[in-house]
Amino acid sequence: MNKIRAMVLGLLVWAAPTALAQSQPDLNAVAQRMAERLQLSEATAQALREAFARHADRYEQGGFFWYVAAELQRRLNDEQRAEFWEEPLRAERERPARRRWRERQDRPDRRMRRERLHRRDDRPPAHRAAWMAARGARLADYLNLTEAQRDSLAVLRRRQGDAMRELLRQRREGALSAEAFREQVRQLREQYRARFRQLLTPEQQERLDRLEAIPENSRKAMLEVLRLTDTQQQQLAARALQPGPDRGALAEILTPEQQEIVRLHRRLVRAWQDVQRNDG
């Protein structure tokens, strides 16, 4: 069942917020900025602000946007819910060059070239390395690490990266079986986590515990809001193991109401991420 839950989470919560938790902001202001980003009418924006206020206690716990999406799905009429889909469609029409670029990236020859480049160099692509560095900086800010702690963390991350690259090299050369590779990666991550926690004060460890609970809380919120049956969870897990896009699978497995909640959740999270980037 844990494997099924993990695959269900991976299938549905693809747009879960990647920014780290921070002290709770002015949610009314956040909702207003998101409404502006989505170009919502005043009545729909007011419903969004009210939903934010009603579920404010869940903001830092994980799953916040699932509850907001479910409430909007119940409260808004068809015309109001349609406002959430109009903005991205209009933006897509206004950016044909961006659409053509994505189509080129999806070509088989482009994908094969990216795979060859990745196999030739163990280092992550520049954009991924920059993203990981920014994520580490946000974590350090969230935990209020001292300069000495940040330096120790940088050394720890560097050693972790070197060890992971060595495991990847051994796996490619056949020195490690797939099972042995997975086990050593698991052990390496556990060691990293233990050493990282040793750097922290008790107060910082408590903040880290709250942060680590967010994905599980988000999974529980998703299951509570969507009310997925055991059969639906098993169907989604089976579909997650198959190649190809997942959107058609959602239409076959989820009810129309569940599908609409998922779509609203995605739009809310994407708008929230846009607001966070602009504020940053």
Rank of each mutant, 00 (worst) to 15 (best):
V262D: 10
A15I: 10
E50W: 03
E87Y: 03
M164G: 08
E83R: 09
E86Q: 15
R81E: 11
Q80W: 02
V68E: 04
R227N: 03
R119F: 04
I4P: 14
G136Y: 05
E103W: 02
V30I: 13
A82K: 08
P243C: 05
R186S: 08
Q258E: 12
L72H: 02
D57W: 09
R75S: 04
F181L: 10
L199D: 14
W272Y: 09
E103H: 03
A56V: 06
E212M: 07
V30G: 09
A126H: 06
Y59G: 05
S41Q: 07
E36N: 11
E115V: 09
R197M: 13
S177Q: 12
P215L: 09
A140D: 13
R111H: 09
R93A: 05
R98E: 15
D246V: 04
L167Q: 03
W85F: 03
T18C: 14
P25N: 05
P125F: 07
H55N: 11
E216D: 06
D230M: 08
E83S: 12
R102C: 07
D122C: 06
E206N: 15
T44H: 02
S218C: 09
N217S: 13
H118T: 14
A29L: 07
P96S: 08
T231N: 09
R37D: 14
E60A: 15
N28G: 13
Q273W: 05
A19R: 14
Q160T: 05
L254P: 14
Q198R: 14
A137R: 14
A35P: 14
L208C: 02
A240Y: 08
F181H: 10
W14K: 08
V13F: 02
A70E: 04
M1E: 11
A69E: 11
K3W: 06
S177E: 13
Q233W: 03
Q259H: 05
R157P: 08
L143D: 07
L250G: 06
I261H: 02
V8N: 00
R99Y: 03
G244N: 06
E71C: 00
A237Y: 06
A137W: 05
Q160M: 04
Q258L: 08
Y67E: 07
D162Y: 02
Q24C: 12
I4C: 13
N28L: 03
L268R: 00
A43G: 13
M7K: 15
I214M: 15
Q233A: 05
R119G: 13
G63L: 03
R114Y: 02
A16Y: 10
R165S: 07
L226I: 06
T255H: 01
A69D: 12
H265P: 07
E216I: 03
Q39C: 05
S23A: 10
Y192C: 05
R95M: 10
R98W: 15
A154D: 10
Q233L: 10
D279T: 15
E92F: 01
A31P: 11
Q46C: 03
R277I: 15
D106Y: 00
F181V: 04
A29P: 06
A240I: 04
A56S: 13
A129W: 04
Q276T: 12
E103C: 04
A56D: 12
A271C: 09
Q198D: 15
P202K: 11
T231V: 10
L188D: 02
E71H: 00
R111M: 11
P256T: 07
R227Q: 02
R5C: 11
V68C: 08
A29V: 06
A140N: 11
L9Y: 05
L250D: 06
